[in-house]
């Protein structure tokens, strides 16, 4: 295997971690926005408690993706950040608002007046709304990388900076990201809570979330015929492409059935499987492109750089994974155990 391929694989693995961990933190924020019923307050509290200690660590996966991308594949990074300036900037605004508002509401001192309590409500709102908005923009940019419109020169501002992402396919990918994140979060949350009523709330949300996410995945697949022909071809007409699509379908089905039967451990495993297969299916389908058609994994930095990054990543991983394990064991120990039982 070449160095380029290994590093592209590491980027994909980091992105998968970001989606499975950081994505779920956004999804939890979505359920904070849609907290309803007699237990609305308890739902919000469950969300805050679940993501409090871990969200900043989960967020770093995104930083890792970006830094490895611009180090190892500078051409792809330059292309993405030039042509997708608008959705990336919007995503950044969402990231800043979500993170800051969450910290404001969590670490504020106890309110001493009506006005101060009102501020708490504002942070909660901003946190919840930006948790919805940010994943849409993240998905949209990923859709744009797959769509085949990023490369060469275009004549007008709109063709150059707007059309590549403002189209039905990319926006559908954005919505797919949002629904997948929400789905993931509801499954994690239902494993975390000990209260039966709350667990039923999240189970209901997981069933709905899973169904909508499956519909969105179907919609994205249909739209990709025009929206991302290269990816569509590889998924629909190659053996392994069909295999991935089948795996996504099967794990979605398994997740649904497990949730229905309240078998939460297998729901957890199938949900993670579904999301991972979607990501990896997309990545394989656009091989060897990082950005279609402008940059492939062969447009990489010179070998000394690739070797150094790889060494950094390997040594870093030796520190990272034990630390991450420790973090999760301290705060999520009971859940991990329950999932493994």
């Amino acid at each position: 295997m070449s160095l380029e391929l290994i590093l592209a694989g590491i980027i994909l693995i980091s992105l998968t971690f970001y989606v499975l961990l950081g994505g779920a933190d956004y999804g939890a924020g979505v359920w904070s926005l849609f907290a309803t019923g007699p237990r609305a307050l308890a739902q919000r509290e469950a969300v805050a408690k679940a993501i409090g200690p871990i969200w900043e660590a989960n967020h770093v996966w995104l930083i890792l993706v970006v830094t490895v991308l611009f180090t190892a594949f500078p051409k792809a990074f330059a292309l993405l950040s030039t042509r997708l300036h608008i959705p990336l900037s919007l995503m950044l605004i969402g990231i800043v608002l979500r993170g800051s508002a969450f910290a404001f509401r969590t670490h504020d001192v106890v309110p001493r007046s009506e006005r101060e309590a009102g501020a708490q409500k504002v942070w909660e709102r901003v946190f919840a709304v930006s948790s919805v908005f940010t994943p849409i923009m993240l998905g949209t940019t990923i859709g744009a990388a797959a769509s085949g419109r990023l490369g060469g020169q275009a004549d007008t501002f709109v063709d150059m900076f707007v059309r590549p992402w403002a189209n039905p396919f990319c926006l559908a990918v954005g919505l797919l990201a949002l629904t997948l994140f929400a789905f993931l979060a509801s499954v994690y949350l239902l494993l975390e809570t000990r209260d039966d009523g709350l667990r039923e709330d999240f189970r209901k949300r997981a069933l709905w979330g899973g169904a909508v996410a499956a519909l969105m995945a179907g919609a994205v697949f249909l739209l990709s015929k025009n929206g991302a022909p290269y990816v569509q071809y590889n998924l629909a007409y190659t053996t392994w492409g069909r295999l991935t699509v089948a795996l996504v379908g099967l794990s979605a089905l398994a997740g649904f059935v497990s949730l229905w039967q309240r078998r939460y451990r297998s729901a957890f495993v199938s949900t993670i499987g579904e999301v991972t297969f979607i990501l990896w299916g997309w990545a394989l389908a656009q091989y060897p492109y990082l950005v279609i058609p402008g940059a492939t994994i062969m447009d990489a930095a010179p070998t000394p750089t690739l070797e150094l990054v790889l060494a950094t990543l390997l040594i870093g991983a030796l520190v990272l994974f034990p630390s991450l394990y420790y973090l999760y064991r301290v705060f999520k120990g009971s859940i991990i155990l329950r999932a493994l039982e």
């Binding site: 660590a57 770093v60 930083i63 890792l64 830094t67 490895v68 611009f70 180090t71 190892a72 500078p74 990074f77 930095a301 010179p302 750089t305 150094l308 990054v309 950094t312 990543l313 870093g316 520190v319 990272l320 630390s323 991450l324």
Partner: peptide, 17 residues
């Protein structure tokens, strides 16, 4: 990127810890 990028990757791990 190929020259100073590895520093940012190192920084990424510092952020993780």
């Amino acid at each position: 990127g190929p020259l100073i990028g590895p520093l940012f990757a190192l920084e990424g791990f510092a952020f993780f810890t």
